[in-house]
Simulated scan of single mutants.
Amino acid sequence: MSAVLSPAAERICQAAILHFAEHHYGSASLNEIATAAGIRKASLYAHFKSKDELYLAAFNRALAVELEHVQQCFEHSNATPLGLQYCRSLQERYAHAPTLRFVLLAAYLQPASLKVTLDEGYEDYLQLLQDRFSDALLHAQPALTAHPAAITQFSVAYLGIVDSLHVKLIYTDGNDFQARLTALEMLLSASLQHTLHTL
C-alpha cells in the first residue's frame, strides 16, 4: 500500500511517474523531475532521500492505479469474458497511461538495486490478474468447480498470454499486437472448449 505523502511529495511522485514512464532508471534525471514538479533539485531531497526512494514511491503509486484498472476490467467484462477485456485494453492503455508504461518498464528493465521490491510488486499485479481470471472462468463455466486443477492450468495459461502481450508492448512498441492477441484469444477459446467437452 502506498504511503501517505505531503502534497509537495505527491506532486513530485506524479512528475516522476511521467518521467520514469519514458526513461530507464539509469537515464532518468532527478533534475528534470524536480523541474516538472516546479521545484529545485535540492528541494526534492527534502522529500526523498535518494533516486531509489523516489522510484519506489512513484512505482507504488503507478502500481496502485494499474491494480485498480485490473479490477475494473474484470468487474465490467460481461461482454468480453475470460479476462479478454483487460488484454484488449492493453495497447491503447500503454499508449495513453504512463502508469502502465512505468510499471512494465520497472518490471522488465529494472534497476538491480530495486529488483526484489519491484519483482514483488509486479508479482502482486500478476497474482491479481490470475485470481480475477480464475473467478471469471468459474463464473462462466460452473462445470469446472469440480476440476480445480483445470482452473489453475487455464489461469496460468492466461498469465502466459498477459506476459506475451506485455513483452510485445515493452520491446516492440506493440507492432503486430492485434495479430498476436487474436491468435492467443483463439487458442485460449479452443483449448477451453476442448476441455469442457472432455470433462
Rank of each mutant, 00 (worst) to 15 (best):
G83E: 02
Q141V: 14
C73Q: 02
A157R: 11
T145F: 09
V103L: 13
D124V: 10
Q153M: 11
S113V: 01
L159M: 05
L144C: 09
L100P: 04
V116I: 13
L114M: 07
Q72D: 15
Y94G: 01
P148M: 13
Y125Q: 02
E92K: 12
F74Q: 02
Y122T: 03
D135W: 04
S134Q: 06
L105V: 05
V70P: 06
G83F: 00
Q72G: 14
V162D: 07
E92C: 12
P81H: 05
I151F: 07
D124A: 14
Y125V: 00
D163L: 13
Q130Y: 04
I151Y: 02
A106Q: 04
E120C: 03
Q85G: 12
I161H: 05
A112N: 09
D163V: 08
L126T: 06
L159A: 06
G121K: 04
G160F: 01
Q130I: 03
Q127R: 06
F102Y: 02
V116F: 13
Q110P: 01
S113A: 15
V116A: 15
A149Y: 10
D124T: 12
L144P: 14
T145H: 12
A146P: 03
Y94W: 09
A112M: 07
L104F: 03
R132M: 03
A79S: 13
A106M: 06
Q127I: 11
A136S: 15
L138E: 06
R132Y: 05
L129I: 10
A97P: 01
L118M: 05
L114D: 03
V70T: 08
A140E: 11
Y125D: 00
S155C: 00
A143H: 08
A136Q: 08
Y158A: 10
L90T: 00
P111Y: 03
S77N: 15
Q71A: 15
A95P: 03
Q110F: 08
A150S: 12
L129C: 13
P81G: 00
H147N: 08
Y108D: 02
Y125A: 00
N78Q: 13
Q91Y: 08
V103H: 03
A97S: 13
D135K: 10
P148C: 13
L90Y: 00
A97R: 06
C73P: 05
L159E: 04
T80R: 10
R88I: 08
T80K: 09
H139C: 13
S113C: 06
L84M: 12
L84E: 15
V156Q: 12
T99I: 02
S134N: 05
P81L: 02
L105Y: 07
S113I: 00
L159Q: 08
S155P: 01
A112T: 07
Y86H: 07
L144H: 05
T145Y: 09
L100A: 08
E75D: 15
C73R: 01
H76L: 11
G121L: 03
E120K: 06
A112Y: 02
A95T: 09
Y125K: 04
V103S: 06
H139K: 13
S89A: 09
